[in-house]
């Protein structure tokens, strides 16, 4: 009797949890749904269809907004630019940051100590970007790099370097050192060991780091707005143009929103397993 009651209670509470889970998931997903719903409406329906705005029930969906937007040369160009900048920034970041992370993880530094070096890298994230915006702008002007992909790649490498150093340091610490020591005994040099053994063993973390850098670079707006005008105009800056002298056009906002958000959201889903770890810079294992 007692056992039955417990079972029943557990059953009810389990349903309550499921309902709660559904509610939380719905709250999180609702804005994405709204964007999709808006993006397939006619301009006239953007304001007049209210409530949940279920396609087919409350209005007849159309792909016209999508066609117009995707057919625009400027949109295609911005997509290409964003992809180039994000990929190259990711590559540059790992090339520079991974060896440093390895050094901090595997060699002893006395002054400053290993932990302090890691912290020093981490502290670079504290700096509000706006504090360096004007100097950066002037430097890029001095280098003649305004409105180039290279400028954006350099900038984003800078912002993401500390993250990757800290993530990878943690990853290398967790890789067993025995293999490397055995290789050293066999006469391999540190560079080979780093490339052939350590990086390979830390590969999952490296993948997570790359994905995070790509997403962060894709999303970066402030510097992209300052630096990229014509040739190096990226998606967030293009996006900002959904507002014009004549107001916000909801239907285009929705389309551009989705175009901008889809790649990083997909990345987040791909890297789901590593994301907790990546975003806490390796301190919490997901």
């Amino acid at each position: 009797m007692e056992a039955l009651r417990t079972l029943k209670r557990r059953h009810i509470s389990s349903w309550a949890y499921i309902l709660l889970a559904i509610f939380v998931a719905a709250m999180t997903f609702l804005p994405f749904y709204w964007a999709i719903s808006l993006s397939v409406r006619n301009p006239a329906e953007a304001f007049t269809v209210t409530g949940l705005a279920v396609p087919f029930v409350q209005y007849k969906p159309t792909l016209a907004n999508w066609k117009t937007e995707l057919a625009t040369g400027e949109t295609q160009k911005a997509l290409v630019n964003s992809t180039i900048v994000a990929m190259c920034a990711a590559l540059m970041t790992i090339v520079i940051a991974t060896p440093a992370a390895y050094a901090i993880a595997r060699f002893r530094f006395r002054r400053p100590s290993n932990g302090n070096i890691a912290l020093w890298f981490l502290s670079q994230r504290v700096l509000p970007p706006v504090a360096t915006a004007i100097p950066f702008f002037l430097i890029m002007r001095f280098l003649g790099l305004l409105d180039t992909h290279i400028a954006l790649i350099l900038l984003n490498t800078t912002f993401n370097l500390p993250i990757v150093v800290v993530i990878m340091r943690q990853a290398f610490i967790e890789v067993p050192i025995e293999l490397e020591e055995a290789a050293l005994v066999d006469g391999a040099n540190h560079l080979d060991i780093f490339l052939m053994i350590s990086v390979r063993l830390a590969a999952p973390s490296l993948a997570a780091a790359v994905l995070i850098v790509i997403a962060f670079t894709w999303n970066e707006f402030l510097f992209a707005l300052m630096i990229g005008t014509i040739k190096a105009k990226v998606i967030p800056v293009h996006m900002a143009g959904a507002v014009d002298t004549r107001g916000v056009q909801f239907w285009f906002v929705a389309v551009r929103t989705l175009i901008a958000m889809t790649p990083p959201v997909i990345i987040a889903l791909l890297a789901q397993r590593y994301i907790v770890r990546g975003l806490t810079f390796g301190a919490v294992k997901g």
């Binding site: 939380v24 998931a25 999180t28 997903f29 804005p31 994405f32 709204w34 964007a35 808006l38 997403a215 962060f216 894709w218 999303n219 707006f221 998606i235 967030p236 996006m239 900002a240 959904a242 507002v243 916000v248 909801f250 906002v253 929705a254 551009r256 929103t257 989705l258 901008a260 958000m261 990083p264 959201v265 990345i267 987040a268 889903l269 789901q272 994301i275 975003l279």
Partner: peptide, 20 residues
């Protein structure tokens, strides 16, 4: 999985989206 989605959603796009 669903909770992972907002993490990397482009902030500038999120701003516009919430405007609507």
């Amino acid at each position: 999985t669903v909770m992972t989605m907002p993490l990397f959603a482009t902030p500038i796009a999120v701003g516009f989206l919430f405007f609507t």
